[in-house]
Design a protein around this nucleic acid. Sequence first.
DNA 1: AAGTCGGGGCC
DNA 2: GGCCCAGACTT
Length: 369
Amino acid sequence: MTPSAAALLRWYDRHRRDLPWRIPPGQGAGAPDPYRIWLSEVMLQQTTAAAVAPRFRRFLERFPSLEALAAAPESAVLEEWAGLGYYARARNLHACARRVAAAGGFPRDPAGLRALPGIGAYTAAAVAAIAFGAPVVPVDANVERVMARLFAVAAPLPGARPRLAALAQGLLAQAAARARPGDFAQALFDLGATVCTPRRPACGACPWREGCAAAARGEAEALPRRAERRARPHRHGAHFLLGDPASGRILLRRRPPGGPLGGMLELPGTPWRDAPWSRDEALAHAPLPGLPWRLLPGSVRHGFTHFTLELALYAATLPAGAGTEAGWDWRSPAAAAAVVPTAMRRLLALAARGAALPSQAAPQRPDAA
DNA sequence: AAGTCGGGGCC
DNA sequence: GGCCCAGACTT
């Protein structure tokens, strides 16, 4: 039997999540703001709603409109993005804002949106459906999981993705779904996030329980299947904390775009490689190799998507009168901790434990709750 | 089709 | 520890 879009929308009207990028209940039926919808969708790429919510509010305070974002320098956007990960999203977000502002607004159709930087098939469909009411279903991991269970698709991801997407689009044949495309999409997200969860799905609370092929066979939790993944290699690096006792600041530099943590500020360091770095090898990459660099006890471990990283930290003090080089960026430890990626923030915490920071300020992100 | 891009929360 | 998440981009 065909799953009822009307039944899902009834469930959504009663049980939907209250999220900051949705129109608040008391706000009336104002049209959704494409800027807010687009921003939330980019932040939500591979990132949970709980992690995005506080960062979404903070980002809007700093960049309240598309025009404000387009007028800002890229470095300000990257610093605001610090800690959210996948920093190419922030670079593409900024480039997209400039193009859309110059064009006078967002395209309203999926194909036009898809041509913008940082907007793939999913985000184009999500913005078109939620902000503009286009009759499309954005297919994210939630929708894939719901479809795989509803229709008992045993083929593994990612190969099964086209088939799962086609099944989702097929639901739009129902008039109830076409009448509310944005709500229908968000209803699928919420069903996947709160009921049809990856582990221990709450099938007893599901509005589609009757028509679910996987639930009928008692194998909902086993779907969707996934192709096997490779083991993650282990990599090593060494970074350098140069403190200036006269100013209480530390040295940062900007990473090149394209690679890991592209465009972000970091403590200067070696490249990351498979083998650990000897002291002599590491110091060849130090900002001032002649200084008496001190290897701090302990190390920082950080997991990336496809490798784990172990970082050593050397500390030294800038001698009075030492020359500085162009491109060196000096900041207080607290200011540095607020704008660097998490791996670097952990190095600053290691330095604090080792009493290697030039000031007493503890490295904490000001608004990371 | 496969690799490269973070980070946090959960088990 | 591994797995998961409102994916995009490159080759």
